[in-house]
Nucleic acid binder design. Structure first.
Lengths: 158, 158
DNA sequence: CATAATTCACTGCGTGGCGCAGCTACTTTG
DNA sequence: CAAAGTAGCTGCGCCACGCAGTGAATTATG
């Protein structure tokens, strides 16, 4: 292995080390603290996030997205309805199904909880040039996809 | 606002949008799936991570790190001891205190669970030049620190 | 077309993690 | 040497979750 390879290896190790263990731990911590402050479960916060990204979804879909059984998802929705964060809407095309959609109050709640981190992250990015921002975007996009793939592999694989 | 500013604004929005809601959600999901596969709690996995980063710690410190009361931390440690993932070691300088340190088995467990994501992330980084890797490192380092600060603010703030 | 099989979402019940309050043991302080 | 402070550990109640079963609605089958 040449000297240049050693340098790159060191660089790779550092990036992965910061991104995967360190940053990931902080994100999980943040999610937990946010949930505590909102007076709901970690899972409930994930559910609101999922609705924000995915749009209206059925209880069954939400159960898959947050890794719960349909029974537990049903009670989770009960909690979120009681907290005025989501609404149950009958599916017009299939009378068995129910669509869950976030209320404005629910959108605001989760948005406010994460506003601080978003502001901080934008401030961090002020130091980057446009070209550098594109590099960062390539990375976070790839990382998000890889993480999603890994989640899927572990959920379904051996 | 000039055209260039609009472009940068769009870029910023995209980077933040992918990094904070999307990627963060995936990371929380992954943590949950890993915990389920290991047959332990999300909190337990966080605790093992914290020990990996922080080194041996007292139950009180661990309670703070994973956002639990000392009572719950005590039972969490009971579970991890039963699963042969951590060890209780008396502190020689203060006989009230106990140091928790991970066992080799515990280190291996959490390491194997995250090996897949680490491999994927390294593969993602193959496409980046050394200079680009340094840009990515600047970002993830800043993001990790900002997330940590935000956790601290929410835990202690109003 | 009638009927069986499937797919939804939704409940009783038991398990277990968690916070709260109180406890003992030890250390520090005056 | 007593009083206060700090460490970790337990009874108790609460509630989120998985499991198993129910009813309603849809789709497949003879």
């Amino acid at each position: 292995m040449t000297k240049a390879d050693q340098g790159r290896e060191e660089l790779l190790r550092e990036v992965v080390g910061v991104a995967v263990p360190n940053w990931a731990i902080r994100v999980v911590q943040l999610n937990n603290v946010v949930a505590t402050r909102l007076g709901v479960t970690d899972t409930d916060v994930q559910c609101l996030h999922a609705l924000d990204r995915h749009g209206p979804a059925t209880p069954g879909e939400l159960a898959k997205l947050v890794n719960l059984t349909t029974g537990s998802a049903s009670r989770m929705i009960d909690r979120l309805v009681a907290a005025d964060c989501v609404r149950r809407v009958p599916d017009p095309t299939d009378r068995r199904r129910v669509l869950i959609e976030p209320t404005q109050h629910g959108i605001d709640r989760v948005g406010q909880a994460y506003a601080g981190l978003i502001t901080r992250t934008r401030d961090d990015l002020d130091d980057f040039t446009d070209d550098e921002l594109r590099v960062v975007l390539r990375f976070v996009t790839a990382a998000e996809e890889s993480t999603a793939n890994e989640v899927h592999r572990l959920q379904t694989g051996p």
